[in-house]
């Protein structure tokens, strides 16, 4: 657009980041990142979400220093069972006389572990299946997408339950089950994105340079699908946490005495009326972290996927 923009000239490192003529690969990339960061920070809720997620990571790393008691070994069963929140036990104690605050702190490790593993397993599978199906088309597309449909046809928790039942209860198997059940939506998204770009001129141009199909998919198609997928995975994190907690609640996820939040809510169920804190505190943790991921996902969508935000 023409006309003189009345923009005050930024200075120093900002000018360097926003330079229209970056001098190196890194400057170009950082400049792009900085612009994204600027539009991200314009959304206070998203920053809050990021704060929650960062907090989760910090708490998980420094659990040993933060937690005042052991998460597994309880106190005196006669005098320290089911104590209400107090100065010594911030979140109270449970039926095994364990400090709930310490258990919630250590539980963050399990939650983070589940999230990271699921993201690392499900995202690449979904991305690969979706882009390959979308780019190649034809019978490859048909076969891959029918498999995806089969997975999509079952409710996620039921399918995860079936997998855990087959693999045996335990946190690792729960993670595998959740990962296996969460890639199909990612494959769908990646395929839809791929379909819109596979006939574009820049893909035709790289084909005409003699690029191989894997090169086109990995180097040219995947980067464009990645942003909408990151948004979707972040938004899904809340669901993944809930599924993990649900499996724990049903006794199919983490096994006692692991301080998994869902399993903690399950034990607290028995004391819900008289000792509400036993179930409420881990429940609150699940709620805060899920909300944090949702807000973060919303903010990321505004930055990475401006079309969908409208």
């Amino acid at each position: 657009m023409a006309g003189a923009p009345s923009l005050s000239q930024p200075s120093g490192w900002r000018a360097w980041l926003l330079s229209p003529e970056p001098g190196s690969r890194w400057q170009a990339r950082l400049g792009r990142f900085y612009l994204g960061w600027r539009s991200f920070t314009r959304n206070p809720l998203a920053v809050m979400g990021l704060g929650v997620v960062v907090l989760l990571i910090l708490v998980a790393i420094f659990a040993d220093f933060i937690a005042p008691y052991s998460p597994v070994i309880g106190g005196d069963l006669r005098t320290q069972r089911l104590l209400p929140p107090s100065e010594t036990y911030w979140f109270g104690t449970d039926d095994q006389a364990r400090d709930i605050f310490s258990r919630v702190i250590y539980g963050s490790r399990i939650t983070l572990w589940v999230i990271v593993l699921v993201a690392l397993i499900a995202t690449p599978i979904g991305l690969l299946v979706g882009t390959v199906a979308g780019y190649l088309g034809g019978w490859v597309d048909t076969v891959l997408m029918r498999i995806t449909d089969i997975f999509l046809a079952f409710p996620r928790l039921i399918l995860a339950l079936a997998f855990v039942a087959a693999l045996g209860p335990g946190i690792e198997n729960a993670v595998i089950a959740i990962a296996i059940t969460s890639w199909p939506p990612y494959a769908r998204i990646a395929r839809a994105e791929t379909l819109t770009i596979r006939n574009s001129d820049f893909i035709a141009a790289v084909k005409l340079q003699g690029a191989s199909t894997p090169r086109i998919i990995l180097g040219h198609v995947v980067p464009l699908c990645l942003s909408s997928l990151i948004v979707r995975v972040t938004l899904d994190m809340a669901g993944i946490i809930l599924t993990a907690a649900g499996l724990g609640f049903l006794g199919l996820g983490a096994q006692p005495p692991m301080p998994e939040w869902g399993a903690m809510v399950a034990t607290g169920r028995n004391y819900l009326i008289d000792q509400w804190w036993v179930a409420a505190m881990p429940g609150l943790a699940i709620f805060v972290v899920s909300l944090g991921f949702n807000l973060l996902g919303d903010g990321l969508r505004d930055v990475l996927d401006p079309k969908a935000a409208k």
Binding site: M1, A2, G3, A4, P5, S6, L7, S8
Partner: peptide
Amino acid sequence: RFHLRTGTVEAVR
């Protein structure tokens, strides 16, 4: 005029 975050741009003057 378009009032954008980066400043005001006058498209028709």
